[in-house]
Structures are given as C-alpha cells and as structure tokens.
C-alpha cells in the first residue's frame, strides 16, 4: 500500500517537473505572459461568477471569463472561433442572460449565502473531481503532434459543407433543425397567452 502511494507520488513529481521543464519558465516570451494573464482572468472570473452574491455582477464576471476564453482562442490562432465566441457567447448568450436578469431580479438584490453544508459538499465534490482530473492529466503523456498552421476560412468552409470523412454537412443540417425546434420551444413556452376558462377540471392538486 505504502509503496504504491510512494511510487505514485514519485511519478507525479517526475511528471510535474517534466511539464515545468518543457514550459521553460526561465525564458519568458510574449505568449507565456499572455497565457498567464488570460488564465488569471479566467480563473478569477470563474470563481467570482459562482461566488458573487449579486447576480448582475456574476454576469459581468462571466462576461470577462468568456472574453478571456476568446483571447485564448486568439492565442491559439483560431481567429474564427474567437470571433464566434465573442458574437455568440459574449454577444448572444450573455445578452439574453442579462436581459432575463433585468426582467426577473431587482438590481440591488443579493442572494442569501448558501448554507455551510452545501458549500462544504460542493467543495469536496468539485475539489476531489478536480484533483482526480489533474492527477490523471499530469500523469498522461500526450502524443506530440506537428504544429500545423491554423485553418484558413477556405478550409473551414469546405469542411463545413464536406460530405466525406471530416466533412460536416450532416451535423450542419441537423443543427439547423435543432435551432428551429429550440426556437419553437422557446416561443411556445415564453409566449404570453390567456388562460382558458376552467371548462377543464382543475388538474393541480
């Protein structure tokens, strides 16, 4: 038992030192600085999103997190994805969320702090999950791919409408139906309509 733990710990230490060696922190470059800044924003933003007790602030922090994620995509040279992230996520989803917050909550509203047992439970659950994931990730040696140039829009467009392997026309079509269905669903739920006269027996009890 002890030996297993010990060997596990050594393996962990080795992997961690290897990763840091490959990062080569002694020679800072622009990309490293940018990554660290973005990571800081993302982490801080995420934590504040879920812990802030004012809902509008939480949304704002989420916005910064999403922005930083878009920055990450830019860093990875996926400009198109970064643009999508900005328009759809930050521009679309977040706007909807903010609207609904403004519709449903008063601006000065503060949540009650969650009960201690729930916070502890959450910490234990999420913490152990995170720990496990990080251990597994650290111990894994990923294959080294060749850094190919980022896709240009031509390639993206061709792949999006391609019918063969690595072509995405079918998911593209299906997702259009998905969006249609969601639209109808959202409308049918949110549309205001009068309650009919109670010719039906009352179904709630």
């Amino acid at each position: 038992m002890m030996e297993t733990i010990q060997s596990f710990m050594t393996a962990m230490m080795n992997s961690v030192s290897e990763i840091f060696a490959s990062a080569d922190l002694t020679r800072p470059t622009w990309s490293k600085w940018i990554f660290m800044a973005l990571a800081g924003v993302i982490l801080l933003g995420s934590v504040l999103t879920v812990t802030s007790r004012r809902i509008l602030r939480a949304a704002t922090f989420l916005f910064f997190t999403l922005l930083a994620t878009a920055g990450l995509y830019l860093l990875l040279e996926y400009e198109f994805l970064a643009a999508v992230q900005l328009t759809v996520y930050a521009g679309g989803i977040l706007v909807v969320i903010v609207f609904s917050i403004l519709l449903t909550s008063h601006i000065s509203y503060r949540f009650d702090p969650p009960p201690v047992w729930r916070v502890l439970g959450g910490l234990v659950a999420a913490g152990s999950g995170l720990l496990l994931t990080i251990c597994v990730l650290v111990l894994t040696v990923f294959p080294k791919g060749v850094a190919a140039p980022a896709p240009d829009m031509q390639q993206v467009g061709n792949a999006l409408l391609g019918q063969d392997v690595h072509g995405y026309v079918l998911p593209f079509e299906v997702i259009s139906i998905l969006l249609l269905a969601c639209m109808i669903g959202a409308i049918v739920v949110a549309r205001k309509s009068r309650e009919p006269e109670a010719s039906q027996p009352d179904k709630t009890e």
Partner: peptide
C-alpha cells in the same frame, strides 16, 4: 441535444 432540449420545452 436535439433529443433533450425540445423535451424540456414540451
């Protein structure tokens, strides 16, 4: 997702 999101609306 197509199989679950519309169900929520339903």
């Amino acid at each position: 997702e197509l199989a679950s999101i519309p169900v929520a609306a339903a």
